[in-house]
Amino acid sequence: MDTTALHGWAAGEAGRPASPDWTIPQHWERYTPEEHATWATLYRRQMALLPGRACAAFVDGMQRLPIEPDRIPNFEALSDVLMRHTGWQVVAVPGLVPDDVFFEHLANRRFPAGQFIRRADQLDYLQEPDVFHDVFGHVPMLLNPVMADFIQAYGVGGLRAQRLGALEMLARVYWYTVEFGLVREDGGLRIFGAGIVSSAAESVFCLDSPSPNRIAFALERVMRTRYRIDDFQQTYFVLDRLEDLLRLAEIDFTPLYERVARLEPLPPDAVLPEDDVITRGDGRYHRAKMTPMA
């Protein structure tokens, strides 16, 4: 792999900044017209897709934060608004950061956002989270008190899970909520996960495609379920309401880790007899992409 194209922790020692918390200046003034144009293309594409798809909390955050259509947001301006309402701030990092650094930031209500933006030829897929994913996808939800409290609790829980050797199980909870979560709202399903809301293709796939499973969220079930990092999800878990996240923030996960660790992990497309299935997917998308072995 050519690590020169990667950022932050993904680039190895070359991506490590001087600061121990991995923060760097955003240097907003250094973004080029081409980089602002990339933001504008991504922003307008998503804003055309998301009405009727994104949850109310995301829409509210977008309306109240200084996130403009034609330029990459300034992290200081975002933090000024967030601090007044939920006590969060956005800090710039070069890209991915080590898990302990990530959890420490979240535990202290600092959201680490990648400072770089993808190239114009990477609009549809990027293997790392960039400023568009981190700011457009995550930051509007930080203005919601429920999500603000949940993500801080996740940071605290992540530090504990590391000590207990249970990080993989907790990471699945984050993946299937903060990154790829759906919620019931206004008589239908709505998106609140940042990985979906920042993706043009998955914003449509997660709600419209007959391929994936859509299953009511159950904590231990989610903790057992592997996920896709290379393609659309094969299963989406659905909250009855965002406020259910607060209950997760109050749970002692230690006995859950012990219980789930004794069970076999589940593949991303699993459907169990006890699942509350909202939509049973036909798997056609991922099945069509499978190629016979030579």
Score class of each variant (00 low, 15 high):
Ser203Glu: 01
Gly15Ser: 14
Gly195Gln: 00
Thr86Phe: 02
Pro145Tyr: 00
Arg119Ile: 02
Ser198Asp: 03
Asp70His: 11
Ile72Arg: 06
Pro265Asn: 05
Asp2Glu: 12
Pro69Asp: 04
Leu142Val: 00
Gln162Pro: 06
His133Ala: 04
Arg71Asp: 10
Glu13Met: 13
Thr32Phe: 06
Leu245Met: 15
Val238Tyr: 11
Ala200His: 12
Ala249Glu: 08
Pro140Asn: 09
Leu49Gly: 04
Asp252Ser: 10
Arg284Ser: 09
Leu50Pro: 03
Asp70Gly: 12
Asp121Arg: 12
Phe217Asn: 07
His7Ala: 08
Phe150Cys: 02
Thr4His: 08
Arg280Val: 11
Leu248Gln: 13
Ile72Met: 06
Thr235Arg: 13
Pro73Asp: 05
Cys206Gln: 05
Arg184Val: 12
Gly155His: 05
Ala107Met: 15
Pro255Thr: 11
Asp269Trp: 14
Ile229Asn: 13
Arg163Ala: 09
Gly157Ala: 14
Val277Asn: 06
Thr254Ile: 13
Ala77His: 10
His105Gln: 02
Glu274Cys: 14
Ile24Phe: 02
Ala249Trp: 05
Arg262Gly: 07
Leu239Asp: 04
Pro98Phe: 12
Glu185Phe: 04
Arg172Ser: 00
Ser19Trp: 14
Ala54Tyr: 00
Glu179Asn: 05
Pro25Tyr: 08
His286Tyr: 09
Phe180Gly: 04
Asp60Asn: 09
Gly52Ala: 03
Phe217Met: 14
Val81Thr: 12
Ala216Ile: 03
Ala40Met: 07
Leu65Glu: 01
His138Asp: 06
Leu106Gly: 10
Val93Thr: 13
Arg118Phe: 14
Gly187Leu: 00
Arg214Glu: 05
Cys55Pro: 04
Leu42His: 11
Arg221Thr: 09
Ile24Val: 10
Leu65Phe: 01
Asp276Glu: 10
Pro112Cys: 15
Ile151Asp: 02
Ala54Ser: 00
Phe180Pro: 00
Glu34Asn: 13
Gln26His: 05
Gly157His: 15
Ala14Asp: 11
Glu104Met: 14
Val93Asp: 02
Pro17Cys: 00
Pro210Cys: 05
His85Asn: 13
Gly114Pro: 01
Thr86Tyr: 01
Gly283Val: 03
Leu242Ser: 15
Asp276Ile: 11
Ile67Glu: 01
Gln233Met: 03
Val222Gly: 02
Gln26Phe: 07
Glu76Leu: 09
Met141Val: 02
Pro73Trp: 01
Arg287Gly: 15
